[in-house]
């Protein structure tokens, strides 16, 4: 059965809006857990003494670690949607520098656009969202863009 209360489409009025800012403190344990989950436990990710010997302040994060910077609440444009109908379409990262344990970021998630396409099995709406993380000095350090397909019931493929 499908979630009868879920909205069948993304509300376009949310385009151009963003979540409230939230704070992320990058923790060693979070980096270690992420490195273990992706099967890449490099000493630079898990061994603080090694990382310091290489000149880093503490352990560093793997390249896609910013995916863990998630808003504490579902973003408003997703509140009415059925998460079972999401499919990952695209994703990108732009980084100014490597993320290091101890970093503190102020993050916001922006809904940049919603693009509709007709797939073989029904309509797909592609949500273009960007998470932007700024450091204490206000510098943008990492942007994580995502394109997520929201499937009409029955539409299976993100790239028909």
């Amino acid at each position: 059965m499908h979630d009868a209360n879920a909205a069948n489409e993304v509300d376009r009025r949310f385009i151009g809006t963003a979540t409230e800012p939230w704070t992320v403190e990058v923790e060693k344990g979070a980096i270690r857990a992420f490195a273990a989950a992706i099967g890449d436990e490099q000493p630079l990710y898990v061994d603080e003494a090694h990382a310091r010997a290489q000149g880093w302040r503490s352990v560093i994060a793997p390249p896609t670690f910013a995916v863990t910077f998630r808003p504490p609440l579902r973003p408003p444009w997703q509140a009415a949607l059925d998460e079972g109908r999401y499919l990952a379409g695209e994703q990108w990262f732009k980084s100014e520098r490597t993320i290091v344990a101890g970093d503190v970021f102020t993050c916001r998630l922006h809904l940049v656009d919603v693009v509709e396409k007709q797939g073989r099995n029904g309509r797909l709406q592609f949500m273009h969202a960007e998470m932007r993380a700024h450091d204490a000095s206000g510098q943008l350090v990492v942007t994580n863009g995502r394109v997520t397909a929201y499937r009409a019931i029955g539409a299976l493929k993100a790239h028909p």
Binding site: G89, E90, Q91, F93, S95, H159
Partner: peptide
């Protein structure tokens, strides 16, 4: 030695 990845992007083609 690892190099610094400035940009990384991907399209997902199949699960």
């Amino acid at each position: 030695d690892a190099l610094f990845i400035r940009q990384l992007s991907a399209r997902y083609l199949a699960p």
